[in-house]
């Protein structure tokens, strides 16, 4: 029972990471109709920025906020400068540009920071939290708290602010959006900026666990893909639920099904993705979209 609760807690913690990244993917997918293959590397690069600031002696939370702001601007610029020219191009072209971006960010990180694995601090005390006979890692709890807070903030933003409403409108119907005066291009860029922020937070929260290196996000990105696919690429709520589901399942399977363990983690994600796409391509919460011919 205690193991179950502990596993549930760490499942929720990794689920929060997957949910953040999956939400970032969904946000870009809804705005620009493209799966951002570079999402993981953008998050990784943000985490390196945070590391640089921390190394320069900036206090943790100041570095955290600064990284969030820098990542937002970075995401915005990536959309305006790199994605914009191929916005109306066929899917293949956009996918290739995203892959190009992935490769560039990955190698830049390697170039600047080397491929040596670096430790990354957690803002939470290392002392575990004892509730009765169950012991929870404080980092796990902190991760759950921060991701939930962030998701709540995004919900409020999209649901209740004019800008959030305009972003949803722009993603749905760009032509009508322009007719009510929404600057659609900027809304898309804003979407990329917010996605970069989600990624940055996920990266900083997961780095103490997986350590900092240029390829740190690839496995996590796959799990985010699986989460978004499970929840449905057209549904932000689905992506979040999918993220937590995947996180919990991963931890429980890792503990109770030794055959698969952690060695086939990525394969499990692959099977999950293909399985969902075959059985229910729109995911648990997604809308079936009408395909343009």
């Amino acid at each position: 029972m205690e193991t179950l609760l502990q596993q549930l807690a760490s499942g929720l913690a990794s689920g929060g990471i997957y949910a953040s990244l999956a939400l970032a993917l969904v946000m870009i997918y809804q705005a620009t109709d493209v799966v951002n293959f570079a999402q993981g590397e953008m998050a990784m690069f943000s985490t390196y920025l945070a590391w640089t600031l921390l190394n320069a002696g900036v206090p943790y939370w100041a570095a955290f906020v600064a990284t969030v702001v820098l990542s937002f601007v970075g995401g915005l610029l990536i959309e305006r400068l790199i994605i914009r020219p191929v916005e109306d191009a066929p899917i293949l072209s956009i996918v290739i540009v995203c892959i190009g971006l992935l490769v560039i960010l990955n190698s830049l990180a390697g170039w600047i920071y080397s491929y040596i694995i670096k430790p990354f601090p957690s803002p939470f005390p290392p002392r575990p939290l004892r509730l009765g006979s169950v012991v929870f890692g404080t980092h796990d709890l902190g991760v759950i708290g921060i991701t939930l807070l962030m998701l709540l903030g995004l919900y409020v933003f999209f649901r209740f602010t004019p800008l959030g409403l305009a972003m949803r409108a722009a993603a749905q119907n760009p032509v009508s959006s322009r007719l009510v005066g929404i600057r659609v291009g900027w809304m898309l860029a804003l979407g990329w900026g917010l996605a970069a922020v989600l990624g940055a937070v996920a990266g900083m929260l997961v780095a103490p666990v997986v350590f900092l290196e240029p390829n740190m996000m690839s496995g996590i990105l796959i799990y985010a893909f699986a989460s978004a696919t499970l929840g449905g690429f057209t549904s932000p709520v689905g992506a979040v639920v999918g993220g937590f589901l995947v996180g919990i399942t991963e931890n429980l399977v890792g503990t109770y099904v030794p055959l698969i363990g952690t060695e086939l983690k990525l394969t499990v994600a692959l099977v999950l993705i293909i399985g969902v796409l075959l059985v229910r391509p729109s995911g648990l919460f997604g809308r079936a979209t009408v395909r343009r011919v």
Binding site: V97, I99, S107
Partner: peptide, 16 residues
């Protein structure tokens, strides 16, 4: 060590 990939990435995007 990282340069080839940076070049690949730039080429991918420029080609598009």
């Amino acid at each position: 060590k990282a340069a080839p990939w940076a070049i690949y990435g730039v080429f991918l995007i420029l080609c598009m």
